[in-house]
Amino acid sequence: MNTEVKIAGVSFKNPVTVASGTFGSGMEYSEFVDLNRLGAVTTKGVSNVPWTGNDTPRVCEVYGGMLNAIGLQNPGIEVFKNRDIPFLNKFDTKIIVNVCGKTVEDYLEVVEKLADEPVDMLEINVSCPNVKEGAIAFGQNADALFNITNQIKKIAKQPVVMKLSPNVTRISEMAIAAESAGADAISLINTITGMKIDINRRTFALANKTGGMSGPAIKPVAVRMVYECANAVKIPIIGMGGISNYEDAIEFIMAGATMVSVGAANFVNPNTTIEVIEGIENFMREKNVSDINDLRGCVR
């Protein structure tokens, strides 16, 4: 039975990774999860300088999911290089580093600083507001997405995955923009912008007012978007959005994803990733599927 998948020449022992921001840099969850078993660890977004993030409350629960507005708090690329990469390198898993920034130059600086680091792929979070262009997220405008992808690809030493925002009219247009600019893969979906109001306190549940929704409730939207993108581009897709168990993961794979990420479900059960991996293997055995790659995009 083969569970190995490939993206841009990088081999992953299985198709399961974690969604950026839900797993830190692996250190915190390593008390509960054997990181060696994961296809890859996708790290919390890292920027060129440390980011303080938003005020609290930063998280709240909603029906079947949660909202977060952490504000991409992170220690900056220097601490990340000195602490988090060496930690992850002790494990037999692949490392996907998520990169965020406020300007194209910010992203390029991080990508450049990662060039000689022992990491396997870069995932670019384009849901951050572009502060030089009216604070519209890079991923919400096809031209801006093409431009940032193109510039990153010119200097990146590792394969580049563009992480798409679902907060757009047609996600397939964004997938096409990323592909035509040279992206090696795309990942989707990032969180869906939402809001919760605390009716007793007559205020917003989050200090930031809006937050990104994740959790099981968003899964049908995510599956649909993965399917649309799989029909629009040839580059591989890392699918995510509400994956809680192996059935969810297989849905994404059947919709066209090469890999899948477990996100908010890590909070629901720290062992979710391992249960998803074992569940996929059991499913393959039961259904006589000898190669995970045969399941990909099998619904058309």
């Binding site: 921001g21 839900t22 980011w51």
Partner: peptide, 22 residues
């Protein structure tokens, strides 16, 4: 999360925190 991964539950500190670097 309750394990230090999600950075949801922070408090502002007087000095720079060794882990967060902010």
């Amino acid at each position: 999360c309750g394990v230090g991964a999600c950075l949801g539950c922070v408090v502002k500190t007087k000095e720079k925190d060794h882990h967060s670097n902010v």
